[in-house]
Design a binder for these strands. Structure first.
Lengths: 221, 221
DNA sequence: AAGTAAATACCAGGAAATAGGTATTTATCT
DNA sequence: AGATAAATACCTATTTCCTGGTATTTACTT
């Protein structure tokens, strides 16, 4: 018989936490020791209680899921992390896995799957929603020849460098090229080069595409 | 003693619906007759059962909360609509109220508030989360003099006309002015005028701002 | 030590966006 | 009937963006 799994839930949607608590409460062998509405709260409450598993949303105020997962892995490496979110962007998934999360499930999935995920992750195994898994797998699939020319639209965008992310964020905040140049103490031509490289990397058409990318990937807001 | 309140819940996040069901199930006098993960499903299921209250999310595939509320009010005017979402944009709130919703609460609020909202809306009264109410109130508050010059940044953007929304959506999809002109069979100069008017209305700096607005307000994606 | 990726910078040209107008037609509301 | 809002169209001028290059320095990797 397995030991009791003690979990903490964190999501900025109170009512979601409330509902989730009800669901988890009736899973036998699983116990909720705390809930939180942001990452900071998670760290505070974990310091006071013992727990095995943290179920985190990514988008949270004060301290988001990514930061929280990283800090957790450093300070409490024994605690497993299961991400429960609605965003299945590949780059986010990757980031979360790098941060030490073992599972990544979407809010669009049902409670049966949640239970499976909890049990697996608490046991140190991985678990992913199907959509997440296929997103992860897609990058390793060989590209069919006829798609090669369409790579800009379908291929996974190369990860951006730190500098490039910085520039995307500024573009998305509606700064113009000369303005960005001033902010970063570099030549406008350099900003221009970066922007062009990024547009190419991401396979978008213009700065508008950069802004959308920035929003989707949490580079701003 | 009040009659039993029969509700239908619609949200594309299954696990949220699951949890919400648990919460509502233990509210006495309230009964869940159906759940749905999109607006189309709501209309289908409502045709088969009787219910008093529809709790809807705004962002849903197939048919979003706004469309669903409008259709509900036409086909089943007796059914009350309570919006349960995470978006508290003023324009969205307004749209939903115009569509006939009586209540508008945020997912960041707790289950006690949910219960109050359900009871009030089912009784034909209005209910709003505090953040929503203050958002609604803000537009009627007199602007302090020192803020007048900052109106572009702080004032509530005027609602866009249908045509303008159309153009914002196309800009956000990375179409250029001449491309949009071709798509809409109007002169590029007209598109330009629209874009300028919209930028002014929304108080943004450029097309990048339009794209962000479009994303936030569900004009695209 | 050589190779690669990243960040930097520049040139030149054309397309597009922005900012400042004005004006007409149509539709809706009072 | 008159006022107002919306959609349409045009003009001028400047700035920014996009596209096509090339090139240098630094840093990391093998």
């Amino acid at each position: 018989m397995a030991a009791l799994i003690k979990v903490i839930i964190a999501d900025d949607h109170r009512i979601f936490v409330d509902g989730l608590s009800e669901i988890i409460a009736r899973i036998s062998g699983v116990d909720i020791v705390a809930t939180a509405s942001n990452g900071e709260e998670v760290l505070q409450k974990i310091a006071k209680t013992t727990c095995d598993l943290a179920i985190l949303d990514i988008h949270m105020p004060v301290r988001d899921g990514l930061e929280t997962a990283k800090t957790l892995k450093k300070q409490f490496p024994r605690i497993k992390v299961l991400i429960l979110t609605m965003n299945n962007e590949l780059s986010l998934i990757k980031s979360m896995l790098e941060a030490g999360a073992l599972g990544y499930i979407l809010k669009t999935t049902g409670k049966e799957e949640l239970e499976r995920a909890i049990r697996r992750v608490a046991a140190g195994l991985t678990y992913f929603s199907e959509a997440v898994a296929s997103e992860l797998a897609r990058q390793y699939l060989p590209k069919s020849p006829e798609l090669v020319f369409d790579s800009a639209a379908t291929a996974e965008p190369m990860p951006l460098t730190e500098r490039e992310k910085e520039i995307v964020a500024l573009v998305a905040r509606e700064y113009s090229t000369p303005e960005i140049a001033n902010l970063l103490f570099i030549a406008p031509t350099t900003v221009d080069t970066h922007r062009r490289n990024i547009i190419q990397k991401l396979g978008v058409k213009s700065s508008v595409g950069l802004a959308k990318y920035a929003l989707k990937h949490g580079l701003i807001d």
